[in-house]
């Protein structure tokens, strides 16, 4: 099935879940393992064994026009179920099956409103580090901002 490029209008809950998923996707395996240990490493079963595959990354002609196929990205997905029946999912760039499974567990835990704050607290160090890296990169980039001056040409 071709994905709907616009997707369903994300309500607030979906946007919050996406934010946690993005945080996990940008984290490394050790970050997620540490977060899960802090949350007591609940019992889980695989809904689907972690699996590596491909997603065709698409761009748009001119940046904003018709889509075209740019090239594939490697993606690893995992789906798990907690003892209470909640299922969790993860789709991450790369080939780290362990990391995807850890993220799927965190996704399942996060969906329980009673545990949401604890999941977000466990991921807070990752969020802080990601934000610090982003800010540092932005400061490096800002130092290379250039103001070109056009010189008068000889014939003028």
């Amino acid at each position: 099935m071709a994905p709907d490029p616009t997707g369903p209008a994300p309500d607030h809950a979906v946007a919050d879940r996406q934010a946690v998923m993005a945080l996990c996707a940008n984290a490394n395996r050790d970050d997620l393992a540490a977060a899960l240990t802090a949350l007591g490493s609940p019992a889980t079963e695989n809904l689907r064994a972690p699996e590596t595959g491909l997603v065709m990354a698409t761009g748009r002609i001119g940046g904003d026009g018709r889509p075209f196929n740019l090239g594939e990205v490697s993606v690893t997905r995992a789906a798990i179920r907690l003892a209470d029946g909640t299922s969790g999912f993860a789709y991450h760039l790369g080939r780290d099956r362990t990391k995807a499974r850890l993220a799927a567990i965190l996704d399942a835990l996060w969906q329980d409103p009673a545990r949401r704050d604890r999941v977000e607290a466990a991921l807070a160090p990752v969020a802080r580090r990601t934000e610090a890296a982003r800010a540092r990169a932005a400061r490096h980039t800002a130092a290379t901002r250039v103001d070109f001056l056009t010189l008068a040409r000889g014939e003028d």
Partner: peptide, 23 residues
């Protein structure tokens, strides 16, 4: 290598207008 992997699908088209610009 890529021929050994299943394809899950196609991405949402990337938004280069929202790029975190490094250059």
């Amino acid at each position: 290598f890529r021929t050994t992997l299943p394809r899950f699908g196609a991405s949402v088209p990337v938004d280069t207008g929202a790029m975190a610009v490094e250059r």
